[in-house]
Nucleic acid binder design. Structure first.
Lengths: 360, 360
DNA sequence: GACGAGTTTGCATCCGGATGCAATGCCTAT
DNA sequence: ATAGGCATTGCATCCGGATGCAAACTCGTC
């Protein structure tokens, strides 16, 4: 990048345009445009010359102008809400990196109780985003989602809408919840509890239903089915106290890790129970905190990389094709057995015998 | 919003343009444009008619086109990196909400080791963002920052660059670190340790220097000054083990809450020390986790709302004025004394006596 | 009823690239 | 040497709104 002598760094020094550069070089503006567009008809030699001159005069195509003429913004809108659950920031980070690899910049739309949702959705359309990825479990109705994504590529991540008219990618919640139930059964627990998060969200419902169903199939007793009301530490803590108060329960599945950690603290510190001897605890997601030695929480790992990859692939596919066929894409996760359900010795035994229970 | 009959929801159904709407109404395109631009010369009556028609025909000004002609994108780029520290997602959420209130949409630029930084910065310019807010403590040199923000409003949040040629807003790290040292002294501790995070970042340096200086002023002994190398739980844990191994230390200040929590687990669970009896622990930021009963961590609260407000105010100011004068804006935070430095009784006493030590 | 000031509205052009189509150039085959 | 075919390049126009300027209109006044 060449320096712009005498620039104070803040004056709106107008950048050079394609036409100017073209005139300076004695070529046409079209040539300049072509030099920057792969796959266009231009000789290697001229392209080379133009790119060199561009470098020299610090020319850069104006993205806004090309958006206007191509009707492609190369922007993906990411609709987000639960940033306080660390699972999401990390997912978003990976997603935006991958999107960028395929040429899409990410525009974040924070949807929260505080914000004006209508306005956000309008912005989504005004900015002409080519694609929309919705990560927010909450708030948005199927109807507004359909309106906001109308005419553009769209993928829902970790949520669905009842009529399945939009493509979704998610962790296989049913597989996960069943795996946890199976695991509780395998370690000899028979009186189990379920703690949910945000009611009415698809993830929560799937995890709850699959778990409860499997528990029944295995002949275990469901001692509690509590709705935390939200995916928070506090809700988990409260539920933990409730479960622990009743004595009988020997295993609890919390619909996500944050809840589980709240429950863990309640059961262990709040009530003085031993984990996992008195009560086994499992979460869902595999956020970083679950690996803290303090918790070493058994959880079901969401296949984040696969989710991101699939999401981006679907977006690209939709952008390429004219037709739109909504699909549902559950992706397999992995049960991670840690200390919160197995004592240290048991874990070692299992690991020595070469079985799966991963840790790390 | 009127429905578009017969639309399958995904066809690139071209939206209506200002010219078309104008023709339909028998007015000029300029009138339509003016109807949507406050402060332009147009009669209330015509504006009214046009807005109604716009509603009816589902017309919306194309943001891209107006960006092109006004050379204003109304987009603020937020340059971010440490999303794993929950402090940042919450800050970003508030920031993007406030920016939106003043009419700026947020474009997120994730800068991480994995991503191509150069490309991100180029994108920042290509998309013609009007303003840049840099929250990433790391990675970016002053030079590249200056290049990326050249000619636009720019504010660094919680970081500075040595030559102070860019405006910054941050928590007063010096005040905070001194307050912690004072607090350690007030509760009778005399052998204190410091654990840093990312070396060479301004926040880390300021906290470290201010703390160490104050410790010396108060005649306390600095037993350790450890650089964690990064702001992570693991680094904090490791540092905690190191500090605890040596016995003598009776208070430790970790440069942020995540480090402190790692240290807490190491000292309490890893080494079996009593907190705060054997060793007092303090962090910095006041993330949600510090309020978990398990930790009840004493920390210095960053004035997030004030930081956001000031940042937005400065951005608006820069956008309005032609000249650019970099300023440094440290904002006062608040020491929150919790159980990790004071036993329960002591806390109650203090609270009863009507003194400051806040909780929650 | 005419004139001037002030307000509305429309016209024309611009913002900076993208792209269909025609013009030009180059090489090969006859 | 000449015609046909492909590769390059330039021309003109478009994308959808914004805006300076002039035309048209509204009122109030004398």
């Amino acid at each position: 990048m060449s320096t712009n002598a005498g620039n104070d760094g803040k004056s709106p020094r107008k950048p050079i345009t394609a036409r100017e550069l073209a005139r300076l070089m004695g070529v046409s503006q079209s040539a300049v445009s072509r030099a920057f567009t792969p796959g266009t008809s231009i000789s290697a030699e001229l392209r080379e010359r133009i790119l060199r001159a561009a470098e020299e005069f610090d020319y850069q195509p104006n993205a806004i102008a090309s958006m206007l003429s191509t009707r492609r913004s190369n922007i993906a809108g990411i609709v987000v809400s639960e940033m306080q659950n660390p699972f999401y920031p990390s997912l978003i980070e990976k997603l935006s990196r991958e999107l960028q690899r395929v040429g899409l910049q990410s525009l974040m739309f924070n949807i929260t109780r505080g914000s004006n949702i209508e306005e956000q959705l309008v912005a989504l359309r005004k900015y002409n985003v080519d694609a929309v990825v919705v990560i927010s479990a909450t708030v948005l109705s199927g109807a507004s989602l359909r309106w906001a994504t109308e005419g553009r590529a769209a993928v829902l991540v970790n949520r669905t809408i009842p009529d399945q008219t939009l493509t979704s990618v998610s962790c296989d919640n049913i597989e996960g919840a069943r795996a946890i139930a199976d695991h509780f059964h395998a370690i000899g627990r028979r009186n189990v509890a379920f703690v949910g998060g945000l009611p009415h969200t698809s993830t929560n419902l799937e995890r709850q239903n699959a778990f409860i169903t499997r528990v029944a199939e295995l002949g275990m007793t469901l001692t509690h089915a509590i709705s935390g009301g939200e995916y928070s530490y506090e809700a988990g803590y409260k539920a933990g106290m409730e479960i622990g108060a009743a004595e009988r329960t020997d295993a609890a599945f919390f619909a996500n890790d944050i809840l589980a950690i709240g429950g863990f603290d309640a059961l262990k510190d709040g009530l003085g129970l031993r984990v996992p001897e008195d009560i086994a605890i499992a979460g869902f997601d595999d956020v970083a905190m679950t690996r803290w030695p303090r918790y070493s929480l058994t959880t079901f790992r969401q296949p984040v990389d696969a989710i991101v990859a699939k999401t981006v692939a679907l977006i690209m596919e939709q952008l390429a094709s004219k037709a739109y066929t909504p699909t549902q894409n559950p992706l397999s996760g992995e049960l991670l057995v840690r200390h919160s359900t197995l004592g240290a010795q048991a874990l070692e035994q299992i690991e020595a015998s070469g079985q799966t229970p991963a840790s790390r």
